[in-house]
Design a binder for these strands. Sequence first.
DNA 1: CAATAATCGGAACCTGAGTTCCGGTTTCGG
DNA 2: CCGAAACCGGAACTCAGGTTCCGATTATTG
Lengths: 216, 216
Amino acid sequence: MTSATKSKPTPTPTPAMAPKALRADAARNHEAILEAARERFAEEGTAAQMDDIAREAGVGVGTVYRHFPTKDDLIEALVARRFELIAERGAAAVAAASDDAWAAFSEFMHFSVGLQASDRALSQVLAGHPDLVQKHAEASGTWDATVELVRLTKRAGALRKDAEPEDVPMVICGLGMVTESQTDSPTMNWRRFLALVLEGLRAPGAAKLPKRPRSS
Amino acid sequence: MTSATKSKPTPTPTPAMAPKALRADAARNHEAILEAARERFAEEGTAAQMDDIAREAGVGVGTVYRHFPTKDDLIEALVARRFELIAERGAAAVAAASDDAWAAFSEFMHFSVGLQASDRALSQVLAGHPDLVQKHAEASGTWDATVELVRLTKRAGALRKDAEPEDVPMVICGLGMVTESQTDSPTMNWRRFLALVLEGLRAPGAAKLPKRPRSS
DNA sequence: CAATAATCGGAACCTGAGTTCCGGTTTCGG
DNA sequence: CCGAAACCGGAACTCAGGTTCCGATTATTG
């Protein structure tokens, strides 16, 4: 791969880490596309159409494809962005846990689920691609924060002892799916559902939770 | 819609209730199609293809379409069947509630969610079409059973007072969505999730559940 | 057993959505 | 200010999957 055939007009002075140097208009469009995509995907889920995104970005479809070779690439780029937000909030929760662990934990859950409630594509992707969740949760630092948050909340005695870090993404993804369809149908109300689950997580644990099958 | 233009060659001797009189082979195929569809949809969700279903039923696509004019019709027919099962179990739970209300309630929930865990299409449909849920829940008698079951379980003191009948379909559909993707991924384990929610429903209710927005 | 009408089968059709292509346009270095 | 390189746009292509059509086939009736 890295054959030193310098004959190619690709000297690449800066070996790695330098995908920069976009032309002015290209950079502008890149941002516009990302923004338009966020809107459309949030509203219509992964069913949003590339043509619509292009139009909303004030750009041709071809341009969209030059920036993101595939629809999935575009989606993943957006997911990565979302995870940055979540990771940020996770870190904040860890910091706040020393004060009121349960409040911090609860707030983090509300934020994460709420984020999905306002972004159909996000919940759809997280629902359908557990691998992506794992990947970005780790890459963004969300996973580390979660582990720590669970540890602290348990130590504060606010979280049942048999809860596990894995329960957090489970609940978040699960609730995300709940919101995916009807954000405000009377029968599908994520705030109420989340409250229920949090009650379950906080309960002293009269009924033991079934063990998780086989963890990787 | 119901214009009484009797000019049409549709005398319909038996006013309502008489879509019978299928030719022998037609009846056989009807059943085969339904069975094949159940399998394919259970496995692949609503993405299952009509051609595959036809092949598995040992029948041409045309035949499938004569029995079910549209893919959605076929899906709905299957959903209706499932609701019969659930309604049946709901009635049984109501009967058993006089003995051990919580056990009956809990068992009913497990059954309903488990049914979806083994049928991707079912959970997908319930997730994406709350209207259908409402419709079939009422038509099949599931809804009545649910209301009664909740009443009994509350009276037995096993269910928190601020729980509502609507919470049951909410949880069932919600959990169904959880199972929709990875039935046995370590991070998405519906039994564990359900246990969590049940804990929340049983808890004495230290934290009040948020009120349901606006019920129809 | 023949006539008749319902039923079958599956090739062909149609639509929608992701992706490709290439002539025209804009940016940047000299 | 000029020319090359990079970028843009959107018509056209491709492919998949639901739906239609009609000659062949098979169940009923007398």
